[in-house]
Amino acid sequence: MSSETCLLQAHNLACERDDRQLFRGLSLTAHAGECWQIVGPNGAGKTTLLRVLAGLFTHYDGELHWHLSGDFREHLLFIGDRPGMRAELTPLENLNWLNALHGLDDADPWPALASAGLRGFEDVPLTQLSAGQKRRASLARLWLGEQKVWILDEPFAAVDAAGVATIETRLADHAAAGGLVLYTSHHAVGSEVRRLELGP
């Protein structure tokens, strides 16, 4: 992987949360086209690391550089452990809001929701959807934007086997198309996924 496709350089990251050392001396160089699986026992700081990479959590030591043009958040799709959507609203309303925030005004949420397996549930308030369906609603964004970097926290949680397969192929396609995927899960996507171990 040549250096100019290097998207992320993290050097000697260390994070302490509530008096516990989560991780220390963590370095990571990620290039376009790669898919990173972040593994580690519960409480090892996987979610915290994702939030550090997404710029949501800034109390860490060490250096972190995104080699992306302009505001790195323009190229970032972050789906955290929470759905990121208001339960009172329908997937359509939520996605329209999220698209507008990311300047994707022309992106059509209908096909994306269909690919995420929510055909027929597009305008049902999230409160009436199952946990798996709620997860699919937030994962519908994988088919919406053209953000280069995806940071996903447990994307396969509460998703059935069929859903796992579709998401898996989507992640692989995105990496193959020159994107970068960083996700936490115990489920490996394809053979050449790179693993980042956290924990003691």
């Binding site: 997404a54 710029g55 949501l56 505001d71 958040r73 323009e74 970032l76 972050f78 955290g80 452990d81 929470r82 759905p83 990121g84 959507m85 208001r86 339960a87 009172e88 939520n94 999220l98 925030l101 990311h102 300047g103």
Partner: peptide, 22 residues
């Protein structure tokens, strides 16, 4: 509170937008 608990607040902070307007 509901924005915080549902994660919508997180999405607002991660969006490439000046927080002042939303």
């Amino acid at each position: 509170r509901r924005d915080y608990e549902s994660g919508a607040l997180e999405q607002l902070l991660v969006a490439p937008v000046a927080l002042y307007f939303p």
